[in-house]
Design a protein around this nucleic acid. Structure first.
Length: 455
RNA sequence: GGAUAGGUGGCAGAGUGGUGAUGCGUGGGACUGCAGAUCCCAUUUAUUAGGGUUCGAAUCCCUACCUAUCCUCCA
């Protein structure tokens, strides 16, 4: 398997550090608001990656941090006159709700920053001892001039950077590119430290968390492209200064932006105020539809979003979902591992080539067409069904229902067809409407009636 | 000013040297109690522009223009 690695800037064959065990870390949200589709793109992608790796036989420990102490959380708490912990708790739980909706099931551990204050302090102490950090009048800062590889990930040449291009430079820093490890503060929240009361800087929480579970080096670090500089640059500087190793993470995967076409085309972000939340969309679209839209693109390319675009994507999703429903109702072998009918290699080939989920989806569409065209051998049908099941294991784009529900639906459809044959269309239409209300869409074609879960 | 990724049909979006995937949309036909879906056919010269390399370029090189993003809030 190969994918684009940010540090080397090229496609690299993936080799794990320790056999079939993979340690994956992905930057999670700052819990001060609901997540939007741009956030979802990153989280859905890494969910797919973790699931895929597991299906390929790797044992993946997927760790994600939750930033639960941050200026934005504090600001929100002050504005609403509530405790900052309540803000963090609430939006953490909203985040988990959205993840559930999006079918994100692969994270082993969500690590909340405030549970790792001791480790954060320990890391800062080690950085100061090794001469990589200094105490200033408003906090403890990392001295970037001591770390020669600073800027390597983002390919920035520090002498060419325009300081303060967007954010004012603090005078308490020795160099503009130095970053805060600890911010002095008496208010809430604050913790005691050897240098004074305060709260951690943003970058140090991640290395504290990864060191706790992974040690100083691990396999894959993921996030969106806006975290490359300075966040991930800072993480590398912190951990490598402490460990003396060549790497923090062996591979870096960055997800490109979701652009929002709302008249102007910009990246979707809270600070630009052009967000569409997952919660909002959940009223009109299923989590599977949203996943389909997000995974039907290459992670390394920008993806354009607008409601009309999502809607047309959704039409494509319905076609695939229908094919899946048809296959599910055909009484085919359910055991994906069954050696007699292996899934087509094409799906794996697509994924091995830079995690190209959109190529996998395009192939499923080809299979769907052949299913609709008919004239397939039983063996082909088995293999196609297994390919759908296999792909769905990591794509998570198809809906299915429990055996009991399925039985009831089938019986209702049978009943409806009896009324249809008898010409009692008012009754049969009532049954169809009732099923529709329950999210079951049925269609008559030829002599058969097919059904699928929608909405 | 520096850096990164791009510019492909009406729309979204693949494709790194050998007539351009896939989905949506549009027009026509078949099927159909209705609805919907599906199938068939069509959408006939879609690769930002201009140069260059090559038997051959969306793909490699150069120039220009354009878009998004980063340069210490950000998924």
């Amino acid at each position: 398997m190969k994918f684009r690695d940010t540090l080397s800037g090229s496609l690299r064959e993936f080799v794990s550090i320790k056999g079939n065990r993979i340690r994956l870390f992905v930057c999670g949200p700052t819990v001060y608001d609901l997540i939007h589709m741009g956030n979802a793109r990153t989280f859905v992608f890494f969910d797919m990656l973790a699931r895929y790796l597991r299906m390929r036989g790797f044992e993946v420990f997927y760790l994600q941090n939750i930033t639960d102490v941050d200026d934005k959380i504090i600001k929100k708490a002050e504005a609403g006159n509530i405790d900052w912990r309540d803000v963090a708790d609430r939006y953490y739980s909203e985040y988990l709700t959205d993840c559930l909706y999006l079918g994100i099931t692969s994270v082993n551990l969500h690590a909340r920053a405030t549970n790792y204050i001791d480790r954060i302090i320990s890391q800062i102490r080690r950085l100061i001892r090794r001469g990589y950090a200094y105490v200033s009048d408003d906090g403890v800062y990392y001295d970037t001039s001591k770390f020669s590889d600073y800027g390597k990930l983002s390919k920035q040449k520090l002498d060419r950077i325009r300081h303060g291009a967007r954010v004012d430079v603090r005078e308490s820093k020795r160099k503009p590119e130095d970053f805060a490890l600890w911010k002095f503060s008496d208010g809430h929240p604050s913790w005691d430290s050897p240098w004074g009361k305060g709260r951690p800087g943003w970058h140090i929480e991640d290395t504290a968390i990864t060191e706790t579970y992974f040690g100083s080096e691990y396999d894959i670090h993921g996030g969106a492209v806006d975290l490359i500089f300075p966040h991930h640059e800072a993480e590398i500087a912190q951990m490598r200064a402490i460990s003396g190793r060549r790497f923090l993470s062996r591979y870096w995967i960055h997800i490109s932006y979701l652009l929002f076409d709302s008249g102007n085309v910009d990246k979707m972000s809270k600070s630009l105020g052009n967000v569409v939340t997952v919660r909002e969309l959940s009223r009109k679209y299923s989590g599977e539809e949203l996943r389909y839209f997000l995974l039907n693109s290459r992670y390394s390319s920008e993806l354009l979003f607008s409601e009309p675009i999502l809607k047309s994507s959704s039409e494509g999703w319905k076609r695939l979902q229908k094919a899946f429903s048809v296959l599910s109702s055909m009484d085919l072998c359910n055991d994906m591992a069954c050696a007699k009918y292996p899934p087509f290699e094409k799906v794996i080939e697509a994924m091995e080539n830079n995690l190209d989920s959109r190529e996998a989806i395009a192939f499923l569409h080809q299979l769907a067409s052949s299913v609709f065209q008919g004239d397939l051998s039983t063996e082909d049908l088995h293999r196609i069904y297994h390919t759908f099941l296999f792909a769905n294991g990591f794509l998570g784009i198809f809906r299915s229902v429990s055996g009991n529900t399925e039985m009831i639906i089938k019986q209702l459809i049978e009943l409806r067809n009896r009324y249809r044959k008898a010409g009692k269309f008012d009754v049969s239409d009532d049954i169809r409407n009732s099923l529709m209300k329950a999210g079951v869409k049925i269609e008559d074609s030829g002599g058969d009636t097919t059904w699928m879960m929608i909405g």
